[in-house]
């Protein structure tokens, strides 16, 4: 059935999309403007502001920290999240109902409260170094996404395949890695991308978990904006967007295309 849509509604939707995409275009324009202040449309084209990112050591350091934290937090979350998602799906009847509620708790608790509480309890009271506290915070932040995405992938998995492998003599651990995991590969890819992007863009958890020499890129951007309002910020923003897209492409290429090739 095709419903005729009111032209006014189509016009409104077009405006909404201009509103959604416009500001991102403006950042791109401001990043390549040959002026010492932020402006749009760009006046003269330059890549100077991109070079400037690397010239400012604080940006250089925080880009590396952000990438390290995002990669480690995502990996740890996958290592502890995949078995948890598996248990929730495979042993749903045997495990208490509150367990799945527990796993969405990091979404319910305000991120900023999580960051502040980790600073108080884990860093100040227990003396865990700030880098590891930051890593713990990011791991918890992305864990619910990992568990939810992998659970969704597992919910369509036929566990009788796994039982067949075990009854034919395959050890449970081997079965998990050779039968279960390859079948939810697309879920793992999606979880990795989502978790990585969430971590690398996070402000609220990282806000309290930065110390001397350790800060993340979004926090550094916030600090920089307060002092300078120059196109460097726009170019860092573009860099962050490009980084996001590159991660998506790399993960898709390394895990995704092989998965597609294998199913053919």
């Amino acid at each position: 059935m095709t419903t005729r849509i009111n032209p006014a509604l189509i016009g409104f939707t077009a405006l909404v999309y201009v509103f959604l995409i416009g500001p991102l275009v403006i950042i791109f324009g401001a990043a390549i403007s040959d002026t010492s202040y932020l402006t749009f449309p760009p006046q003269g084209l330059t890549l100077h502001w991109f070079e400037n990112i690397w010239a400012i050591s604080a940006f250089r350091r925080t880009i590396i920290t952000s990438l390290q934290i995002a990669f480690l937090a995502t990996t740890i979350a996958l290592i502890i999240g995949i078995p948890a998602a598996y248990a929730l799906n495979r042993y749903r009847v045997q495990l208490p109902g509150w367990l799945s509620t527990l796993f969405v708790l990091p979404i319910l608790v305000p991120e900023i409260v999580m960051g502040f509480s980790l600073l108080r309890s884990v860093n100040v009271d227990s003396g865990v170094p700030i880098f590891f506290t930051l890593l713990i915070g990011h791991t918890l932040l992305v864990l619910p996404y990992v568990i939810r995405v992998i659970s969704a992938a597992l919910s369509s998995f036929d566990f009788s395949i796994e039982e067949a492998a075990i009854s034919l003599g395959s050890r449970p651990a081997k079965t998990f890695f050779t039968i279960v995991l390859p079948n939810v590969r697309s879920g793992v890819i999606a979880a990795f991308i989502l978790a990585f992007i969430t971590s690398i863009n996070d402000v609220s958890v990282s806000l309290f978990l930065t110390g001397p020499g350790i800060s993340t890129l979004p926090i550094q951007i916030l600090a920089h904006v307060e002092q300078f309002f120059d196109p460097t910020i726009a170019s860092v923003s573009v860099l962050l967007m490009v980084l996001t897209v590159i991660v998506m492409i790399i993960v898709e290429r390394t895990l995704g295309l092989t998965a597609v090739a294998n199913t053919k």
Partner: peptide, 17 residues
């Protein structure tokens, strides 16, 4: 796509505007 772009970047765009 805007959802994949960070909160800081998207708020910053409105400072320019």
């Amino acid at each position: 796509f805007p959802l994949l772009t960070g909160v800081v970047v998207r708020s910053f765009a409105w400072m320019i505007i």
